[in-house]
């Protein structure tokens, strides 16, 4: 690639990050639960995307491609630190510290804080599946393709994660999906 081409590729990368970076950071924040880790995960994913940006930019769905890199960077980051998380049998009240009420949604700040904390307490695989399903609004087959596991495994993780979240909120009973 000539110098002009190289500049164009870099410019394209910057433009894309400027346009789509906020969405990636929001996804990473919901996955990791804090701003510092969210930045770390997104920066790591983008730094790995940069040298092959020419190829990625020609992908059918660039957003999906980079989103997968972010999700995998998140799970890699989690594995790197060997955090052993257990399904949240109960949610510790102090896990809700610092959570403030946001846009309406009809939820009280306490309920929202408890649900957010319960979500963060899920094992990483369940949390990732739940976030992609209920935040990114992806279908099960899309989540399966993105995370590299079978659709059945995704359904199981989502189902189990939701069951734990319901239990932590004191709710039981059949899902009415």
């Amino acid at each position: 690639m000539d110098e002009l081409g190289a500049r164009q590729a870099l410019s394209s990368f910057d433009d894309w990050v400027a346009a789509r970076g906020p969405a990636l950071l929001r996804l990473a924040y919901v996955l990791t639960g804090n701003a510092a880790d969210a930045e770390d995960v997104v920066q790591d994913a983008l730094s790995r995307a940069l040298p092959r940006w020419d190829r990625i930019a020609h992908a059918d769905d660039v957003d999906a491609y980079v989103r997968r890199m972010v999700v995998n960077a998140h799970t890699s980051w989690w594995r790197k630190f060997r955090r052993r998380e257990s399904p949240a049998a109960e949610v510790r009240p102090d896990g809700a510290d610092g959570v403030v009420a946001g846009p309406g949604e009809g939820l009280g700040s306490d309920e929202r804080a408890r649900l957010w904390a319960a979500c963060q307490a899920l094992p990483v695989d369940q949390r990732t599946a739940v976030v992609l399903r209920y935040y990114e609004q992806l279908d099960y087959d899309e989540i399966a393709a993105l995370t590299g596991v079978r659709e059945g495994t995704v359904r199981s993780r989502v189902s189990r994660g939701i069951a734990v979240l319901r239990e932590s909120m004191g709710e039981t009973g059949e899902r009415d999906e």
């Binding site: 996804l27 701003a35 939820l107 929202r112 209920y134």
Partner: peptide, 13 residues
């Protein structure tokens, strides 16, 4: 759950 995740996402850096 979707509403909570969407609201919390606004705290992203």
């Amino acid at each position: 759950l979707s509403a909570v995740l969407t609201a919390e996402a606004e705290h992203a850096p």
